[in-house]
C-alpha cells in the first residue's frame, strides 16, 4: 500500500526539528511562563514513547503476524476501558461497562471491515486502523458514561416519579438515557459533518505524505469516517445501556451513591 520512497525526515532531520523545541523553551524562559522544564520533559517523553512504539510495531510487523496485531488491539481496548470508565464517578462497575462498550464496538467494526475485505488483514493495517476505532470508541463510551452519571444526579426525582407510577426502570430511564447518549454522540456526528472543511483528517494526511494521490487517499478517509461513526454509536449505546442496568436493583430502585 503506497510507496515507501516518500520523503520521510532522516534522523538528522529529527535532530534539526528539535530546534523548534528549543524555540518553545526560549519563549517560555523569556516570557517567564514557567513551562520550560515541562516542555523539555514533554518533548523527551514523546521521543521515547514513539521510539518504543516504533520498535514494537517493527517487531510485530516482521515477526508477530496477525495474532500479535490482535493482541495489541486487545491491550488498547483494556487501556481505553480504564480511561473511559474512570470518567463516570458514581456509576457502579463503570470500567466493565466501558470495556464491553469499547470491546464490542471494536470487534464488530474491525470484523465487518475485514470480512467484507475493505481493509487488508495484515498487522500493518489492523493496528493503525484498529487504534483509530479504539480511541473513538473510548471517547464516546467515556462521554456516554459521564453523561449518564450526570443525568442520574440531575434527574433522580423525575426518574423516581416515573418508577412510583409503576413504570419499569427501562421506561423510567428512557429520556435520561437518550439525553446521555445523544450528547455523547454529538461530537462524532459534528466531526463527520465538517471533515475536510476544517482540517485534513489523520489517515488522509498520512497517505498524502506517504505519496498517495489525494483521490485515492480520500477513499481511505471515507471508510475511516464511516467506521468511526459506527463504532461511536455502538460503544455509546452499549456502555449507557449497561450503566442503566447497574443503576437499578431487582426491585426497580435507583441505587444510592
Amino acid at each position: 500500500m503506497g510507496s515507501t520512497t516518500a520523503n520521510i525526515p532522516s534522523w538528522f532531520g529529527v535532530a534539526a526539528s528539535a530546534s523548534l523545541v528549543l524555540i518553545a523553551v526560549a519563549i517560555s524562559w523569556r516570557e517567564r511562563l514557567g513551562l520550560g522544564r515541562e516542555v523539555a520533559i514533554a518533548a523527551g517523553r514523546a521521543f521515547v514513547q514513539l521510539a518504543a512504539v516504533g520498535a514494537l510495531l517493527l517487531i510485530v510487523f516482521e515477526r508477530g503476524g496477525l495474532p500479535a496485531a490482535f493482541g495489541w488491539l486487545g491491550l488498547m481496548v483494556v487501556t481505553a476501558g480504564f480511561v473511559a470508565g474512570g470518567r463516570a464517578s458514581g456509576i457502579p462497575q463503570a470500567r466493565t461497562h466501558a470495556w464491553w462498550g469499547i470491546g464490542v464496538a471494536v470487534a464488530a467494526t474491525m470484523g465487518l471491515l475485514l470480512v467484507l475485505g475493505v481493509i487488508d488483514a495484515t498487522p500493518r493495517v489492523v493496528i493503525p486502523v484498529g487504534g483509530m476505532v479504539v480511541s473513538t470508541a473510548m471517547v464516546t463510551s467515556g462521554l456516554a458514561l459521564q453523561r449518564t452519571a450526570d443525568v442520574v444526579r440531575d434527574q433522580r426525582a423525575s426518574i423516581e416519579a416515573r418508577l412510583a407510577l409503576g413504570l419499569s426502570s427501562r421506561d423510567a430511564f428512557l429520556q435520561p438515557y437518550r439525553t446521555a447518549v445523544r450528547t455523547a454522540l454529538v461530537p462524532s456526528v459534528d466531526t463527520t459533518k465538517v471533515v475536510g472543511l476544517i482540517s485534513l483528517p489523520g489517515a488522509m494526511t498520512g497517505l498524502i505524505l506517504a505519496g498517495v494521490d489525494p483521490w485515492d487517499a480520500i477513499r481511505y478517509q471515507i471508510v475511516v469516517m464511516y467506521m468511526l461513526l459506527g463504532a461511536a454509536f455502538m460503544s455509546a449505546v452499549l456502555s449507557a445501556r449497561l450503566a442503566q442496568r447497574s443503576l437499578f436493583d431487582d426491585a426497580e430502585r435507583l441505587v444510592r451513591w
Binding site: L163, A164, L165, G166, L167, S168, E252
Partner: peptide, 10 residues
C-alpha cells in the same frame, strides 16, 4: 414491584 406501585400511588 410494578404492580405494587400501581396500587400504591405517591
Amino acid at each position: 414491584v410494578r404492580e405494587l406501585r400501581r396500587r400504591v400511588g405517591m
